[in-house]
Computed example of a mutant assay.
Amino acid sequence: MDAAPELPRNLRGRIAFHAAATEAAESARDRLTAIHGDATPEEAAVVVALGGDGAMMEAQHRFLGRNLPVYGMNRGSVGFLMNDFREEGLAERLQVAQAALLHPLHMRAVCCGGGEVREALAINEVSLLRETRQAAKIRILVDGRERVPELICDGVLVATPAGSTAYNLSAHGPIVPLGANLLALTPISAFRPRRWRGALLPAAAEVVFEILESGKRPVAAVADYTEVRDVRRVEVREDRSLRLTMLFDPDHGLSERIIAEQFTV
């Protein structure tokens, strides 16, 4: 991991808190803001997200473009990207935290019909999903070269390292260590080619999905919270102009958790 951005020595009034909409997360936020205050985005030097991995993603979206580091504490269920929750010593933990840097995905979707173009950013993944009972048929190109002429499936996704432990993992995609500079390309319930399990791609790769028989087999594209219906072409690439920073305790053991998860049976 990289060194964390240098934070002010006095963080009183410089921490912005973001809590998931659960009793446990909101109660923790109330107690912590009573101690540390709750900064506005303009005043904040760091963000503390309370909840599960979804709270981490929500916080990153909320503060996207401000280049504020986000430190998560687990008040949810899984919390793969979260640190252990403790109320005491928060300021000291933030000062010694280590940083993991990543970039969001940029989705450019071209719709059927009039060819309307919709764009969105994704911190976890961009996924394509069939809209009806009929399987989708999708052609996949990577950096302009055809790699899969026809994927018959329920869908397919491109995940960032941060998103590799979310939908990508449930679709049997690989867990990608933070900082690995890779993207996961993972099919969802692939029927043909039956043995294709996806690929790991360089982070700089551009992935293009072309929807075959889009009138008969409509497909939706989803970038985190943004859904675009009836697409005919979707382009996905990393947006290097935006940087996201996640903070972890030095003893968090994220690397060990990533390795152990891959041996879970």
Rank of each mutant, 00 (worst) to 15 (best):
T132A: 08
S189V: 10
L129H: 07
E131I: 04
V207S: 05
A159Y: 01
T186N: 15
N168P: 09
G179F: 13
A199Y: 12
R192V: 11
I152Y: 02
A205T: 10
P177Q: 07
F191E: 01
S164I: 07
T186H: 07
G198D: 12
W196R: 00
R194A: 14
L169F: 11
L200H: 01
V176Y: 00
R197L: 10
I175D: 01
A199W: 12
L178M: 15
K137H: 13
E150M: 08
K137C: 13
D154T: 10
I152N: 05
I175H: 03
L182M: 13
L129T: 03
L178N: 06
L141H: 06
E210L: 09
G198Y: 05
I152K: 13
E150V: 06
E210W: 04
L185D: 05
P174R: 11
R145S: 13
G144K: 12
F191M: 12
G144E: 10
E131K: 13
G198P: 07
L169K: 08
L200P: 01
P202R: 11
R192A: 15
P187K: 06
L182S: 13
P161N: 10
A159I: 02
A135I: 05
C153A: 15
P161E: 09
A199P: 11
Y167P: 06
G173I: 09
R139P: 00
R130I: 03
V176A: 02
A135M: 15
A171W: 00
G179Y: 11
R145L: 14
A204K: 13
R195L: 14
S127T: 07
V158N: 09
T160W: 11
V158I: 15
R130D: 02
T186M: 12
L141W: 00
N168G: 11
R133F: 12
I175T: 07
Q134E: 12
P187L: 07
A184G: 14
G179Q: 14
I175S: 06
G179L: 10
T132V: 10
P193R: 02
K137S: 12
L183Q: 01
P174C: 12
V142N: 05
